[in-house]
Amino acid sequence: MLFKKLNSLEKLYLKNTNKEAYQNYKYQLKVNDLPSINFLDTPKALVDFKHSGHLGDIIYAIPAMYALAENGKINLHLNIGQRIKVDGNHPLKDIGLNEKSVAMLEPLLALQNQFQQIDIFKNQAIDYDLDIFRQFTFDHTKGHISRWYFNCFAVSYDLSKPWLVVPKNTSMSDKIVIARSTRYNSPMIDYSVLKKYNNLVFVGLSEEFKLMKAIIPNLEYARVSNFLEMASIIAGAKLFIGNQSFPYAIAEALKTPRMLESYYKCPNVIPEGANGFEFSFQPQFELLIKKLIAQL
């Protein structure tokens, strides 16, 4: 459809006579300036992707990578040091990725059968720039991160099935594993109700652990040297409880029995598939804990 830009008088008239049409026109202006994507005409044996983070965004991009690569292998080039606008607290402030985060992520992705190489982006030739989703007109505070990629790249994937596979840490089989970043904390949720349980393990940053330890004195801390170790702990857990954070993204990708603390200002993560639950209110949080611990 040919898009016609309006002059100042035409815009003013439209604004005053048809507000809905005016809002649609403003949206069309944004869409008209979206970047184009060069889709592969035929499948390749090896498909190169670029991503600049955040870590959770990378995990949620994997289904789109699988769909775009089809049966081909994947090279993922991670672009460090790129500034990304964030709201709230983030461990890397306004930086998406650094060398340490790439080094910690590499063992987890390298274990996945379809990934051939994970490295730092140094202007390698790429087939798909996954960062492009940030330029599209989604409301990034709502929806489903994985599906933003589907919408950009015209693909789909069954999100009810696991898209990461790791060996389970069997020592976690009776543990409730918890992760809560300082970003996306719901003011309606009180985790101190968990202190009645004796099998609690925390994964995440040491600073995050200290905050949770003050609320749950019997909480233990699982130190990891890379994200494969973290994923193995989450995979082996009886139950995972977390907010919208990187550890939850791993739990979702693994389909571990999981509870998501949904943040009311930015509900852009949705559990899909078996054993995925979400909570926004304290009574439902406490009820889910009781039900799932009894069932699992």
Rank of each mutant, 00 (worst) to 15 (best):
N275I: 01
S262Q: 13
A251P: 08
I233K: 10
M230G: 14
Y263V: 00
Q282I: 05
A251F: 11
Q282E: 11
V269D: 00
A253I: 06
F281Y: 12
P271W: 05
V269Y: 14
P247E: 07
G273I: 08
G276E: 04
E229I: 10
V224W: 03
S245W: 00
S225K: 15
F281I: 12
N243K: 06
A249Y: 01
Y263C: 02
N275W: 10
L288D: 06
E229A: 11
V269S: 02
I241W: 04
V269H: 10
F240D: 07
F227R: 10
Q284P: 01
N268T: 09
A231F: 05
S262F: 04
P283E: 11
Q282D: 01
K255C: 03
Y263I: 02
F285A: 13
S262L: 14
E272I: 07
R258K: 12
P283H: 11
P257M: 10
E261L: 15
P267K: 01
A237Q: 06
F246E: 01
L239D: 13
S262E: 15
I270H: 14
I250C: 10
L287N: 15
T256Y: 10
I234M: 12
G242L: 08
Y248R: 00
S232F: 08
L239G: 11
G276L: 03
F285Y: 14
G273H: 04
I250G: 09
E261R: 00
S280R: 02
M230D: 03
L228W: 01
I270N: 08
P271S: 03
G236P: 05
A274H: 05
S225Q: 14
Y248E: 02
M259G: 13
N243E: 07
L288H: 15
I233Y: 11
F281A: 12
M259W: 08
F246S: 00
Q282H: 06
S232P: 15
S262C: 05
N226R: 09
E252A: 12
L288A: 11
G242M: 07
F246C: 04
F281H: 12
E286G: 02
I234V: 15
Q284T: 12
N243H: 10
A231G: 09
M230V: 08
E278Y: 04
F279T: 11
S280Q: 01
M259T: 14
S262M: 06
I250L: 14
E261D: 06
I241S: 09
E286W: 05
F279L: 06
F240Q: 06
A253Y: 03
Q282W: 08
N226K: 13
N275E: 11
L254I: 02
G276W: 02
L254T: 09
G273R: 08
